[in-house]
Design a binder for these strands. Structure first.
Length: 292
DNA sequence: TGGTTGTCGCAAATTACCTCA
DNA sequence: GGTGAGGTAATTTGCGACAAC
């Protein structure tokens, strides 16, 4: 609750954020020896190299306050994470070698099957495995900033981010998954609000039209009054020549008492629905919300 | 070449923990 | 101090994509 504003509050601008100029920050000295290794090898810059080859460098936000035991031991062995592995959002490569998440705790777990990635949660392995660890503000900030630029991470980015934040890659992965879910939920709420307003406008429009119909029917019952009013016009097509002609409603008996070929058309009231601001496009949930 | 298998990332749903009023 | 609500980290499940065989 306390720092929730950095969560959903940002979700509506995520799409824009993607287009924002990438952060140009300097790598700061890192507490983690793993990260220092990364720096030495200049891997970090590669990790955030966007698909178009643009380099995105960033730094660690201040001293990261970690509230859990980081898997530093994992990091040391993660130096070998160099496979050009990929995900949907990353470069191609052999799938099996892809995920450093598996590497991260390889020393502790015999295999990295999906069902085994739980023991890294909490790390304790026992009841404490479900222990919930709240991310520090600094960690959340960095994650948010990263999310603004990439709503998904490739394994390398995930690993690097995990090292930077002193978190397990799995935690970073989970955070991004939850973040995407929150963003989508927020967008759904916005969409729902919009549709609700549309519905209200349509209801109002319907009410107005019903009222108009009643008024017209009332006029129909009082022909004297009606003579002063132009009849509703309709488009009629000649069945033989197929020409369209503007004419007053001929099917109505009231038309008989009016000019059959009146050139005066009633002004068509602008629909309140049409007046409703429509979204420019139906954008994906993480696109910028440009609605009023 | 097409089918099978293994692995992975992801979304969605859910659970469980934490914080706060 | 106890409690319920809300937020969120973590887990589970199912599916599709991809690469290797």
């Amino acid at each position: 609750m306390g720092d929730k504003d950095d969560g959903l509050g940002l979700s509506l601008s995520l799409g824009c954020a993607r287009n924002q100029p990438s952060l140009k920050l300097n790598l700061m000295p890192l507490a983690s020896p793993c990260m220092q290794n990364l720096q030495q090898r200049n891997i970090w810059n590669e990790l955030f190299q966007s698909s178009d080859g643009q380099l995105e460098t960033r730094s660690v936000a201040g001293g990261i306050d970690v509230n859990q035991a980081p898997a530093l031991a994992e990091c040391e062995e993660e130096d070998g994470v160099s496979s050009p592995n990929s995900t949907v959002s990353s470069i191609g490569g052999k799938r099996n070698e892809r995920d450093p998440v598996c590497d991260e705790t390889e020393a502790e777990r015999p295999s990295c099957s999906r069902s085994s990635d739980d023991e890294d949660g909490g790390g304790a392995g026992d009841d404490a495995s479900r222990k919930k660890l709240r991310l520090s503000k600094e960690q959340s900030l960095v994650l948010e900033e990263t999310f603004k630029e990439h709503s998904t991470l490739n394994p390398k980015q995930k690993l690097a981010l995990a090292m930077q934040l002193n978190l397990r890659p799995r935690q970073v992965e989970v955070w991004f998954q939850n973040r995407r879910a929150r963003t989508k939920l927020k967008q759904t709420e916005v969409d729902c609000e919009y549709l609700k307003r549309c519905c209200d406008n349509l209801t109002e429009e319907n009410r107005r039209l019903q009222k108009e119909v009643q008024e017209l029917r009332a006029l129909k019952l009082s022909p004297q009054l009606y003579t002063h009013i132009n009849p509703p016009t309709t488009l009629t097509m000649c069945p033989s020549c197929e020409r369209v002609a503007v004419a007053s409603s001929s099917s109505s008996s009231l038309a008989a008492s009016s000019a059959p070929n009146s050139k005066h058309q009633r002004p068509v009231p602008a629909s309140s629905w049409a007046a409703l601001p429509l979204p420019v496009t139906h954008r994906p949930f993480n696109a910028p919300a440009s609605r009023p």
